[in-house]
Design a protein around this nucleic acid. Structure first.
Lengths: 124, 124
DNA sequence: CGAACCCCTCTCGTCGACGTGAGGGTTCAC
DNA sequence: GTGAACCCTCACGTCGACGAGAGGGGTTCG
């Protein structure tokens, strides 16, 4: 798959895809003419990356945890030394904190919307 | 409360606090000498803001939803016109998408950690 | 053959969220 | 009353995540 197609498939700009490669997030191989050649399933990886960037994770951290997010296919832990596990666990905690923050605020918005809609209904 | 104290209390830099004011996220009043005077509870608001910024929300959106996050105290919906409710609902959906993304990835890390630790245990 | 449409690299610009002084007033302890 | 520790307002610098364009090559269609 060439970069343009991947871009259309994911809604991520060509420039951004090249940037992700620069940052080591994704590694397409190259065709004879120098064109990037993305493998099957690259679109899911890109959506994954986009989601995490939207959630405020810097590319450095995404690069670090991406190997462990590829699903149960390769759950064979690649060289799990203890410090590395600690680091992954720390990132897990970071994600957890973000989740708690977002959930709290989503719930607050829900409560507001509920109250506002009831108020609107009562006024009719 | 002066800005330095609030900074120490929240771990947010003085510069960032001034920036939040610039962006209309928080409105301290001023003492006679021109010093910002933050009210009781400002620290919680600041932590709120920090959390959302860490989660990738731009200040513009935080400014929009902040009025509806202040807890059940003022659940009296301030002027809820229909389009505004739609916009709040849309922001709610945005939060929800981010949450789903983070939860999926946190779970993936959990699965990895579990497998890795089991592997480590089995090898001893 | 040439025009249209891909793709490449490189470089400079931009935007949000601050960091970092410069230059100057305030308050408090001694 | 002076030095240290705050505070203020500009204003410029920075860093990450791209946008936008220059300059050039590949391929496909009529």
């Amino acid at each position: 798959m060439k970069i343009g197609e991947l871009s259309r498939l994911t809604g991520v700009s060509v420039r951004a895809l090249r940037y992700y490669e620069e940052e080591g997030l994704i590694r397409p191989d190259r065709a004879g003419n120098g064109y990037r050649d993305y493998c099957e399933g690259a679109d899911e990886v890109v959506r994954q990356i986009r989601g995490l960037i939207d959630c405020g994770l810097p590319t450095r951290i995404i690069r670090d945890i991406l190997p462990y997010l590829d699903g149960p296919a390769d759950l064979l832990p690649p060289v799990p030394c203890a410090e590395m596990l600690d680091q992954v666990a720390a990132e897990r905690e970071q994600l957890d904190r973000r989740i708690h923050c977002l959930v709290r605020n989503r719930n607050a918005l829900d409560a507001y919307l509920k109250a506002a809609r009831r108020a609107a209904r009562d006024r009719t």
